[in-house]
Amino acid sequence: MKVSVCTLAHGREEHLINMVKGLSLSSVLPDELVIAVMQDVPYDLPHTDFPIRQIMLGSGSIPLARARNTAATKAAGEILIFLDVDCIPHSECISDYIKASHANSGVWMGEVGYLPKDATRDGIQYDRFDRIAVRHSERPGPPDTGARSCEDYRCFWSLNFAISAKDFRASGGFDEAFDGYGGEDTDFGRTLSARDIPLWWIKGARTYHQYHPHFMPPVHHLDSVLANAMTFARKWGHPTMQHWLRAFVLMGLLERTDNGWRKLRDPGESDFALTRQQADQPYASSARVLAALEAEAMAG
């Protein structure tokens, strides 16, 4: 069974190099790594015992959905493992996904541990990563063993998942109408549900998310979140990303209307300060910010 690891990348060369190093430490090597490169210059990557194919997409405005679809289309594997460019796979990640594919059909979502800043300074040390990585408090945890069916399509997460090439084709891939940040994951999960393709959380298939500065809720992507929320609502008849939209309303960036939401202003420095991930935080938390905003609104 051939396995292709697929990722998309723009910048973050050090993060991508660490992914490649992690793949090289795998107990079962991938048959290839396929990178949808969203910039004009290819990456200078370490030598590996498996082929790396960089698919050059250029630096124009390219939907993330199109980049993922391109990587999947170019991949030769029967199993496609999608990893975010920030992820370092555990040595058993590929092996765990292969085992999962033998047990159940559908989409498998592995574990993610978030690393603090500078965690990779001394190289890839899985024992150390296991001690210091934390699970995202706003994401469901894995089962104690094996696999657990995920009945809520909204939980689909493209950061670390695998799917057979056959099922990916059956899904139709990611919808390229979602342009920019936000909504394309939930849409893909909704499509899986509509096409009766099962979704699974699995124990193992672990990756480690490397630190990078971020904002949550993603005020730096306000325009695309708003546009993609409206795209989702037109497609499925109901909205998505409502927790982010609620936060943006409380921040005075949007207002709720009879037809959805309307932008009031661009975010300013106070909005970025509120949502900015701090250096001591392994991940940015939408729930923390929304709770603070709700408390402020209640106080009055």
Score class of each variant (00 low, 15 high):
5 V>Q: 11
5 V>N: 08
6 C>W: 08
6 C>M: 10
6 C>T: 11
7 T>V: 10
9 A>L: 02
15 H>C: 03
15 H>N: 06
16 L>P: 03
17 I>Y: 01
17 I>A: 11
18 N>F: 06
22 G>F: 05
28 V>I: 14
29 L>A: 13
31 D>Q: 03
36 A>E: 05
41 V>K: 14
42 P>G: 04
45 L>C: 02
46 P>K: 07
46 P>F: 09
53 R>P: 01
53 R>Q: 11
55 I>R: 00
55 I>D: 07
60 G>P: 04
62 I>W: 10
63 P>N: 14
64 L>G: 07
66 R>N: 15
67 A>F: 09
68 R>D: 13
72 A>C: 15
74 K>N: 15
78 E>Y: 06
80 L>D: 06
81 I>K: 05
82 F>T: 01
85 V>N: 08
89 P>D: 04
91 S>C: 08
92 E>H: 14
94 I>N: 10
97 Y>R: 10
98 I>Q: 15
103 A>Y: 14
108 W>Y: 10
109 M>V: 01
112 V>E: 04
113 G>Q: 01
115 L>N: 00
115 L>T: 00
118 D>G: 01
118 D>K: 05
119 A>I: 05
120 T>N: 03
120 T>E: 08
120 T>K: 00
121 R>W: 03
122 D>S: 14
123 G>H: 08
124 I>K: 01
125 Q>P: 00
129 F>P: 02
133 A>P: 00
135 R>W: 06
135 R>E: 10
137 S>E: 14
137 S>G: 11
139 R>W: 10
142 P>R: 09
142 P>K: 05
145 T>R: 13
146 G>T: 10
146 G>V: 12
149 S>M: 15
152 D>Q: 12
157 W>T: 06
161 F>I: 02
161 F>V: 00
163 I>N: 14
166 K>C: 13
168 F>D: 10
170 A>W: 03
172 G>L: 07
174 F>Q: 05
176 E>G: 00
179 D>W: 10
183 G>T: 03
183 G>Q: 07
184 E>K: 02
185 D>S: 08
185 D>C: 08
192 L>M: 12
193 S>V: 09
193 S>T: 13
195 R>I: 08
202 I>M: 14
202 I>G: 02
205 A>Y: 04
206 R>D: 07
208 Y>R: 03
209 H>C: 02
209 H>N: 09
211 Y>T: 00
212 H>E: 05
213 P>E: 05
217 P>W: 04
219 V>H: 02
219 V>N: 02
223 D>V: 13
231 T>R: 12
236 W>L: 02
239 P>R: 11
241 M>R: 01
245 L>R: 04
249 V>Y: 07
249 V>M: 11
252 G>N: 09
252 G>I: 04
254 L>Y: 12
257 T>K: 02
257 T>W: 01
258 D>V: 01
258 D>G: 04
259 N>I: 04
259 N>R: 11
265 R>T: 12
265 R>P: 13
266 D>V: 12
270 S>I: 07
271 D>L: 07
273 A>L: 14
273 A>I: 09
275 T>H: 00
278 Q>E: 11
278 Q>M: 13
279 A>T: 10
279 A>R: 13
283 Y>K: 02
284 A>W: 07
285 S>E: 08
290 L>S: 00
291 A>L: 13
291 A>F: 09
294 E>Y: 04
294 E>P: 07
294 E>I: 11
294 E>V: 11
297 A>S: 12
298 M>F: 07
299 A>P: 00
